[in-house]
């Protein structure tokens, strides 16, 4: 079993695309259900949501308020799962409910354990 990181990208910028509090509650339930299923398979390693606010640092000490101005998809969170292969990890990631939203994406990468 290897560990894979599942990076979840959403549009956190466009105003009209943001969910209402009620919608968000439902989305979070879907998301939690998906995570709980992975936990029940004993394949959950860890993970968390990320605050939308952040800073991006570039060479030369240039600091900006995140990458949001340039790309529509911001990193919304990640989870780390255990899987026997990239294919299995992708299969698990396919169930991620954020994929119900147009323009959202999930990226799966094996953690190779080296810096």
């Amino acid at each position: 079993m290897d560990e894979y990181i599942v990076l979840m990208r959403l549009d956190l910028i466009t105003k009209e695309k943001q969910p209402t509090p009620d919608q968000l509650k439902v989305y979070m339930e879907y998301y939690q259900d998906w995570v709980n299923g992975i936990i029940a398979q004993d394949k959950f390693v860890g993970g968390t949501g990320l605050d939308p606010k952040g800073k991006v640092i570039r060479p030369g000490g240039v600091i900006t308020d995140g990458p949001f101005a340039e790309i529509k998809e911001s990193l919304a969170g990640f989870i780390i799962i255990r899987a026997a292969s990239l294919e299995e990890a992708v299969e698990m990631a396919k169930g991620n409910p954020i994929l119900n939203g147009e323009g959202n994406s999930v990226e799966v990468r094996r953690i190779n354990g080296q810096h």
């Binding site: 939690q32 709980n36 936990i39 029940a40 398979q41 004993d42 959950f44």
Partner: peptide, 18 residues
């Protein structure tokens, strides 16, 4: 069961959870 599994996985808990 979800919280239990998160704390400590066991096959029996996973089956009962399902």
């Amino acid at each position: 069961y979800d919280i239990l599994l998160q704390r400590e996985y066991s096959p029996m808990a996973a089956l009962n959870r399902t």
